[in-house]
Design a protein around this nucleic acid. Structure first.
Lengths: 130, 130
DNA sequence: CTTGACCCTCCAGCTACTGGAAGCCCTATC
DNA sequence: GATAGGGCTTCCAGTAGCTGGAGGGTCAAG
C-alpha cells in the first residue's frame, strides 16, 4: 500500500504518517522507487495511533502504549497506569476550564455589549479580583 | 523599575516579559545602561496581560483587548464579542474533554491493572468502537 | 578588587504537526 | 515520443507561547 491509500484508510493525513515514521513510531518498507510500502501491521499501528491521539494521549504515551501493545508479556497494570495518569490530567484540565468558563460567562453576561465604552470585562481584567 | 521587580509584582517570569516586549505588547523605556525601565503603565499592562492569559485568551486576543482597553471610545460590544467567542471555544473544549474523560474513565475502570497481559484499554485502542 | 546578583542579547528547543518548494515517478492520452 | 496529471519523495520553515542556556555587561557590598 502506498501512503495515499493508507492515509485514506487510517484517516490520517499523509504528512502526519511521514512524521510518525520520522519519529520512529512506524517503520514502513520501501519500494525500489523509494515509495513507502505499508504492510497490514503498519496500517494497524496507524489506526492504533489515530485512536490513541484522539483520546488525547501524547506522542510519548502513544509510543509507550504501542510498545506494551506489541509486548505479549505486558502487565495490564502498566497500561492502566498510563491511562489513569492521563485521565487525571484531563480531569484537572476540565476543572481549570470550567473555572475559566464560569468567570467568563459571568463577565459576558454582565457586559452590555453596546456602543458605549463602559465594560465590566475590561474592568475585571484591569483590576484583578483573582 | 527593573525587570526583576516587575516580574515579582506582576507574577510573570522575566523571560515572558521580554517576550511580550519582543512581540510588541509592551514598550518599556531603556536606561542608559540598556536595562529596561518600566513605568506604572507598563506594569498595568502586564497585570492586564497576566489576567487575560490566565483566562485563556490567546496573545492575539490580548493584543486586541489591550487596544480596546487603551481606546476610550471603544464599544463594549467589541470587547464582548472577543470574550464571547472565546467562551464558546472553551465550552467546546470542555465538551470534547468530557467525552474523552468518559471513555477513558470507563476503560480505566474495566482494566484489571494486574500482572496479566489481558487489557481492555489496548483492546479498545486496537479495535475502535468509535 | 572581587563576588554575586542583576541585567542584556541571541539561539535553540519544546508539541505535534502543517504548508510549501523542488523534483522524481507513473499512467494515460495524443 | 512528448506531455499532462497526479502521487510520491525530501527538506526547510512556521505555528503558540514561551523556556533554557550560553556568553557577556552592570552594579552594589564588603
Amino acid at each position: 500500500m502506498n501512503i495515499g491509500e493508507v492515509a485514506k484508510k487510517s484517516n490520517l493525513p499523509a504528512k502526519t504518517i511521514r512524521y510518525y515514521e520520522d519519529i520512529g513510531l512506524i517503520t514502513p518498507l520501501r519500494d525500489t522507487n523509494g515509495y513507502r510500502s505499508f504492510r497490514e501491521s503498519d496500517m494497524h499501528k496507524l489506526a492504533f495511533l489515530g485512536r490513541s491521539r484522539a483520546l488525547g494521549f501524547t506522542i510519548e504515551d502513544c509510543r509507550n502504549l504501542l510498545a506494551l501493545w506489541d509486548d505479549q508479556d505486558r502487565a495490564s497494570a502498566d497500561v492502566r497506569a498510563i491511562a489513569k495518569e492521563h485521565l487525571e490530567q484531563i480531569e484537572r484540565k476540565i476543572a481549570d476550564l470550567q473555572a475559566i468558563r464560569d468567570t467568563l460567562s459571568h463577565l459576558v453576561q454582565t457586559c452590555a455589549g453596546d456602543g458605549r465604552p463602559d465594560c465590566p470585562i475590561l474592568a475585571k481584567l484591569e483590576k484583578l479580583p483573582t
